[in-house]
C-alpha cells in the first residue's frame, strides 16, 4: 500500500493523480495505523518547515513514521517533504526528521529572485533508482522553493539543478529519497520518476 501522508501541508490531490497515472494506487491518510502499514510512503509538502514538523507532531504521526522507516520502507519526500528529511533548516527552529545528513539553506545571492520558481533542468549525478544517468534526454521538472538541501555527504546526492549555483535537487540515503521539485506537476518526467519509485 502506497500512503501519501496528510499532515496539513500541500497539495495531495495532484500527487495522488500523478501516482495513479504512474500505475500506483495511493491512499491519502493522516491515520497512524494506516501509515504504519505502508509499504511505500510519500511525504508531500508545501509551506514552512516548522509548520510541517508541527503538523506531523500534532497528528501524532512521528512514531508511525519511525516504525515504517525502521522497517526500511521506501520513503519519498517532495519539496518541503524532502527538506524535513534533513536535520534542520534555516527556515525554522524545529529539528527535522534527521533521516538524511543534510541541512536546509536559504538561497541568498543578491541578484537571485527568490523563490526559485518554474521549470528547470535536472542532471543526474549518478545512476540511481530514481534517475537513469545514461539517458541523454534533457529532464525538466517544476520547482517552487526558497530553500535548498545541502548534503554533508556527496554520496547522498542523486541529481543536481542550478539556480545561481548548483544545488542538490534529489537526495537519498538507503531507502529514504527526497526531491526538491514537484514530480506531480512535471509531466512525463514526474510520472517516470514516480514509476521508478513505485518499482523501488
Amino acid at each position: 500500500m502506497i500512503v501519501i501522508v496528510d499532515y496539513g501541508v500541500g497539495n495531495l490531490g495532484s500527487v495522488a493523480s500523478m501516482l495513479r497515472r504512474a500505475g500506483g494506487d495511493p491512499v491519502v491518510s493522516c491515520d497512524p495505523d494506516v501509515i504504519s502499514r505502508a509499504d511505500k510512503l510519500i511525504l508531500p509538502g508545501v509551506g514552512a518547515f516548522d509548520r510541517a514538523m508541527n503538523g506531523l507532531e500534532e497528528r501524532h504521526l512521528l512514531p508511525a513514521l519511525q516504525e515504517v522507516v525502521a522497517r526500511e520502507t521506501p520513503v519519498l519526500g517532495i519539496c518541503l517533504g524532502a527538506q524535513i528529511l534533513g536535520r534542520k533548516s534555516e527556515e525554522g527552529i524545529c529539528a527535522g526528521l534527521g533521516w538524511l545528513d543534510m541541512e536546509v539553506k536559504k538561497f541568498s545571492s543578491k541578484d537571485l529572485r527568490v523563490p526559485h520558481m518554474g521549470w528547470n533542468t535536472v542532471t543526474p549525478a549518478k545512476n540511481s533508482l530514481l534517475f537513469d544517468a545514461i539517458s541523454t534526454e534533457e529532464q525538466r521538472f517544476y520547482f517552487v522553493h526558497s530553500y535548498y538541501m545541502q548534503c554533508r555527504n556527496e554520496e547522498n546526492i542523486l541529481a543536481i539543478s542550478s539556480y545561481g549555483k548548483d544545488f542538490a535537487c534529489a537526495v537519498s540515503c538507503g531507502h529514504i529519497y527526497g526531491v526538491q521539485f514537484h514530480p506531480e506537476k512535471s509531466h512525463r518526467f514526474g510520472m517516470n520518476l514516480f514509476k521508478r519509485f513505485l518499482d523501488v
Binding site: N11, G13, S14, S17, M18, R21, Y142, V144, H182, E184, K185, S186, H187, G190, M191
Partner: peptide, 25 residues
C-alpha cells in the same frame, strides 16, 4: 487539478482569503 500534470493558476472572482486558500489547497 486531477487532469493537469503541470502547474496551473486560477483567476476570476477571487475576493477573500478563504477563496484563495481553497483554490491553492
Amino acid at each position: 487539478a486531477s487532469e493537469a500534470y503541470m502547474p496551473f493558476a486560477y483567476g476570476g472572482g477571487v475576493r477573500t482569503l478563504q477563496q484563495a486558500e481553497n483554490i491553492l489547497r
